[in-house]
Design a protein around this nucleic acid. Structure first.
Lengths: 224, 224
DNA sequence: CGTTATGGGAAGTTAAACTATCCATCCTGA
DNA sequence: TCAGGATGGATAGTTTAACTTCCCATAACG
């Protein structure tokens, strides 16, 4: 057991083996993330040695959370984190990337359907006073895709409730904003926005499932 | 152009080529889905010929929507649809499968963290009057995973808002239930529940993003 | 009755996300 | 100081998912 030098201080500069242990990932995987640029290189101590710190551990945990909980691909995580690091002008843009990454390659082919969806979105946005400038905004595109999918699957009735869901979305957004209020660092704001939405989407979806159980139990008031 | 027999009635029994066209998928892919059992076999017209109907088209569209919009893997789609077909006793169970499929393989390793998350969930459920019987329920497990991920990533503050999000989840669930009220066929109910939640999660997440743009614009009241 | 399509299955492909193996240093404990 | 395990860096190999391609014996069409 030749190694155990660092006195385990709170923000220790550790080497690969310990980073691997703290992060709960095999060394080979961490090396892979380094190669892919998802993880910044360690701090050099000699031409071919390096140390890693708590920032690396946090970064790895964020990567895994975005993948495992948020369902993003490693590639999308890379794009999102790169945008975060770059302090990309607006959170919207960064979140657009994540959104795009989640709602994978679904560009609607049927022109008529896309036209209908676009009109629906514009109407909704106007009713709620939402910004809806460019039709080719990533988020708008995603919404168009979702709307078309719901229609294709034959559940148009569901769209009658669009306004009701939109109102709820407004309340969620207000809540989300509280998490950002008072923070100045743009980079921090963007990271919070990413966590809040990517993980928060999942959180809300699970809570929704639990609430559905409560609701259906109350409604049917029999075995369930 | 040797074929064009069916008079294009509304619910025609078509053959592979036309099914492929209506569904917008290559023949080979449809054959693959048949092999995998995601699609029921066509109606035989001779020992090795078959016809397909609108049910097949709908099924394919559902599969694609669940994959592309809902982000489920083909395997998860298969499990979910099998459960739907089997008229699996409760919608909860079916949705649990989907939930599990979305929030991939994230079983928390750290015992202490899991214990904390479980306690948090139980408290929350009690406050809201939610059912929370078995700790090993798939949905509970998913929630535990999400909670741990949020904590690991260092955004504990986010969890202070758990109750606020839970309240919103309750309102969503009530809305969701409207879509099911009045339908008797259990199988239909389950399908609606699946569509409402898998596609509905995504719908809500996109609406949320749009609402966030509105909210942040209003809050910062400057460029963004 | 010759051409084209079909159902069915085996094998090949592509991409993502790792995992394994090398090897020339490096570092550490005896 | 020096032997042996660890490290950084790179290349090649693995595994799984989701298709695609290919093939062939049988069917259907004109």
């Amino acid at each position: 057991m030749p190694l155990e030098p660092s006195p385990r201080s709170e923000n220790a500069r550790v080497r690969m083996a310990e980073l691997s242990e703290k992060a709960g990932l095999p060394v080979a995987t961490i090396k892979y993330y380094l190669r892919e640029g998802l993880l910044p290189p360690g701090e050099r101590t000699s031409p071919n040695q390096a140390r890693y710190d708590d920032g690396h551990v946090q970064r790895i945990k964020l990567i895994r959370a975005l993948m495992e909980v948020g369902g993003l691909s490693l590639g999308t995580v890379g794009e999102v984190l790169a945008a975060v690091d770059a302090g990309e002008a607006s959170p919207h843009h960064v979140l657009g990337i994540a959104q795009q990454g989640i709602t994978a390659s679904r560009q609607v082919v049927d022109d008529e359907a896309r036209e209908w969806a676009l009109a629906t979105v514009r109407d909704l946005a106007e009713r709620r006073g939402w910004p809806c400038k460019s039709d080719d905004d990533l988020v708008i595109q995603a919404l168009v895709g979702v709307l078309c999918a719901i229609r294709e699957v034959g559940h148009d009735w569901y769209l009658d409730k669009l306004d009701a869901y939109a109102e709820i979305a407004d309340r969620i957004a207000d809540l989300d904003l509280e998490g950002i209020a008072g923070i100045e660092s743009l980079e921090k704001i963007i990271e919070i926005a990413v966590v809040e939405t990517v993980l928060g989407d999942r959180l809300l979806s699970v809570l929704r499932r639990l609430a559905q159980q409560r609701a259906s139990k109350a409604y049917f008031a029999r075995e369930g």
